[in-house]
């Protein structure tokens, strides 16, 4: 259920969302996993989706919004097909992570948490990816790339369509 291509029609997404809501409706503490699944379906969390989730779970919309904005994993706006996360961990910091970030940022023309106009990339930072031995590191989607230089990082992202 990781549709990020944007070609799935609304009704299919809606069906998947309804199925997810039914699955978590009676689960204690089900709000966060449900939001995670909904974000997998839609790529982000539109207002209407959060409203449906709140209704289905019997949770005030204000609380759902509070939860969504608390966790950095949730997004209120559409995101790029490829998510670049440059690690800002201590090891990466001392080995030049900020230069890597600046290099990528300059290449894409977007700042932190920005998405390119063609929805190809979203640029983010992440606290620590736990791959400190390979610092500086970035993650593109689920792939970790290590021992980066700004040039190497730019070359790497170009491989992601």
């Amino acid at each position: 259920m990781t549709c990020k291509c944007g070609h799935v029609d609304e009704s299919t997404k809606q069906e998947a969302l309804q199925a997810a809501i039914s699955k978590y409706m009676a689960v204690k503490g089900g709000l966060i996993p449900l939001l995670q699944e909904a974000q997998d379906i839609y790529g982000y969390l539109p207002k209407e989706v959060m409203q449906q989730i709140s209704g289905g779970m019997g949770i005030p919309f204000s609380k759902t919004f509070g939860v969504v904005t608390f966790y950095s994993q949730f997004h209120l706006k559409p995101r790029g097909r490829n998510i670049i996360r440059v690690c800002q961990g201590t090891a990466c910091h001392v080995r030049g992570a900020s230069k890597v970030f600046d290099g990528v940022s300059k290449k894409l023309g977007v700042a932190k948490n920005g998405t390119t106009e063609d929805l190809r990339y979203t640029l983010e930072t992440v606290a620590c990816l736990g791959a400190c031995g390979l610092a500086p590191v970035m993650m593109v989607n689920d792939n970790t790339h290590g021992k980066l230089t700004p040039d190497k990082a730019v070359a790497t992202i170009e491989k992601y369509e």
């Binding site: 207002k47 005030p60 919309f61 204000s62 919004f65 509070g66 904005t69």
Partner: peptide
């Protein structure tokens, strides 16, 4: 429950849904 805490850290604020 019209309002709740939203966002995090220094940016925390009290907000209705969708701020």
């Amino acid at each position: 429950a019209v309002i709740d805490f939203a966002y995090r850290g220094f940016d925390t604020k009290i907000a209705p849904p969708m701020d």
